[in-house]
Simulated scan of single mutants.
Amino acid sequence: MTKKMDGHVAVVTGGSRGLGEMMVRAFAAEGANVVIASRKLEPCAVLAESVREEYGVETLAIDVNVSKWDQCDKLVEAVYARFDKVDVLVNNAGMSPLYDDLTSVTEELFDKVVDVNLKGPFRLAVLFGERMRRDGGGKIVNVGSIEAMSPQPEALPYAMAKSGVHALTEGLARALAPQVRVNTLQPGPFLTDISRAWSPEFKAGLDRRTSLGRCADPAEIVGAAIYLATDDSSYTTGSLLRADGGWS
C-alpha cells in the first residue's frame, strides 16, 4: 500500500524528544524522509539512527539553535543540500523557563523566550515556505500552545510568543497561498518527559481543566500532525487545530 508521505521530506525542529519525536516517528512510518533538528546533536543522531533502522527511510540529524537567524539559514541550506526539497516543516522547538514572579523576568529571559518561540519559527517558515512555493507546494505546521488562548502569569512571555505564532500562521497562509498551506497545531497538556517534574496535585489540576478529564499520551498528537502534514487537510490553511482535550 502507498503510504501518505512516501518520498516526502519532513523537517521537525525540537524533534529529538517529546511531541517532536512522536511526529518524526509518525512521518517516517508514513514513508517520509525526516530531518531531526534540535540544539543538541547527539539525541538527534540517536533518534535518526533508530528511525532509519525501524522504518527504512533516510534521516538527517542537525544541531540548530532556532533563536539565531544565521543558524536557521544554515539549517535550510543543509536540508536542501541533502534532499533538494522539503515538503513539510514543523516548527516545534520551544521553551518556557521558570521564574519567581513577573517582576523577576529579566530582559535576557524575555528575549530568549521570544526568540525561540516566535523569531525562529518566523525565519524558518519564511525561508522554507518561499522555497516550497517556488517548488510547487508544501505544508507548514506551527506548534502553538494553550497558553496563547488562556495565558497564565507563570508563563506570560511564552504565552505572548505563542500568540504571535497564531498571527504568523494566518499571515503566512495568505502570503504563501495557494501553493503552501500553513496551520497551527495547538497541543494541550501532554505527558512528555517534562511532565515527570509535575507534582500529583499539579497534574490533577490539569486533568480537571480538560473536558476529557485527563492529560494526553504523547502518541495522541500523531493523528492531528498527520492530518496537517498531508493532503488529508487539502482545504485547510490559516487554521488552528486544537489537540487539547477540550481545554477550558
Score class of each variant (00 low, 15 high):
Thr2Glu: 13
Lys3Trp: 01
Lys3Phe: 06
Lys4Glu: 10
Met5Val: 03
Gly7Cys: 10
Val9Cys: 08
Val9Trp: 03
Gly15Ser: 10
Ser16Asn: 15
Met23Thr: 10
Val24Gly: 11
Val24Thr: 12
Arg25Leu: 10
Glu30Arg: 09
Gly31Ser: 11
Val35Ala: 12
Lys40Gln: 14
Pro43Gly: 13
Ser50Cys: 08
Gly56Asp: 08
Gly56Arg: 08
Leu60Gly: 02
Ala61Trp: 02
Asp63Ser: 15
Val64Tyr: 03
Asn65Val: 00
Lys68Met: 12
Asp70Pro: 00
Asp73Ile: 00
Leu75His: 01
Glu77Leu: 10
Tyr80Val: 09
Ala81Cys: 06
Leu89Tyr: 09
Val90Ile: 14
Pro97Phe: 11
Asp100Glu: 15
Asp101Cys: 13
Ser104Tyr: 01
Glu108Trp: 00
Val114Asn: 07
Val126Gly: 00
Leu127Lys: 13
Leu127Ser: 14
Arg131Lys: 14
Arg133Met: 12
Arg134Ala: 15
Lys139Val: 05
Ser150Val: 14
Gln152Tyr: 04
Gln152Ser: 13
Pro153Tyr: 02
Glu154Thr: 12
Met160Glu: 04
Met160Pro: 00
Lys162Phe: 03
Lys162Trp: 03
Ala167Asn: 13
Thr169Tyr: 03
Gly171Asp: 00
Ala173Thr: 01
Arg174Tyr: 06
Arg181Met: 10
Pro187His: 09
Leu191Trp: 02
Thr192Met: 12
Ile194Glu: 13
Leu212Tyr: 09
Cys215Met: 15
Ala219Thr: 10
Glu220Leu: 09
Ile221Cys: 12
Val222Ala: 10
Ile226Phe: 05
Leu228Glu: 04
Ser234Phe: 06
Tyr235Gln: 04
Ser239Met: 09
Gly245Thr: 11
Trp247Pro: 08
